[in-house]
Design a binder for these strands. Sequence first.
DNA 1: CGAGTCAATTGGTTTA
DNA 2: TAAACCAATTGACTCG
Length: 268
Amino acid sequence: MGTEDVCNAGLVLGLNIDGVEEKRLQSKKYQQQNLVCFEFDQLSPMEGLETCLTLSLVPKKINKNKAGDHVQVVHQSSSQSTVSSFSNPNHDITSSNRERDDFEVERLSLRVSDEEDEGSAKKKLRLTKEQSALLEDNFKEHTTLDPKQKKALAAQLNLRPRQVEVWFQNRRARTKLKQTEVECEYLKRCCQALKEENRRLQKEVHELKALKLASPLYMHVPAATLTMCPSCERIGSGSKNPTNGPFAVAPRSHHLYNSSIHHQSPAR
DNA sequence: CGAGTCAATTGGTTTA
DNA sequence: TAAACCAATTGACTCG
């Protein structure tokens, strides 16, 4: 992949961010996503470009939820309270199959009084610090769980296997979201650097055209004898300089000159 | 009270 | 084909 390819890819992706994706990024959800701090140094430019090319921000679908089709039961234990919820088995066959074990267990201890039934708003479970910590520890070891691990962890946490499964799903989603934010931020920076580079090159082209018009002698000088001003190292040694990546910021002012006609002592 | 967080739900897709 | 997964979303809850 040459520098030009790199730049083209970066520019196209940059335009996507500025254009089509802009609307999505403006939505509430994506605005909040963009607040996450980005550690730029974690990615090398080339790694960043790899991610540039594989990053997808396009939503796959839009669906709607049906509301009010679940039952909530609050269990009080000695040290903590947990909220269990399950779908109406008549509502979603697939879901009920998935949760049948949970439901069977739940059903045995389910006692919903009339007051609870009609008056209870949906209570939200908050995992305790200990539960969260243990889940995090397990997540660090493996981001997915096999059924045995899930059951064991659920028993250890005094949660239902489904709750552990949901926690891992949400945790994976958060991880992915954060990764996307990082990549998005990196793309923005790439885009910014490319714009800057583009501006600089345009300016350089402008200067060269002006020089060509102003000095007819320029036309008779072999190209090979044209070189950079000694203070401007970029063109002369840019490709050899390992620090000059595709997004390196070039020296602010430099110009082409012919040593035979430039930098002559005013005394002569 | 609005914004953010997160457990939970839903429905579609993938996989064994 | 069931189970696991994922994306999108909901809604309870918290916080400034």
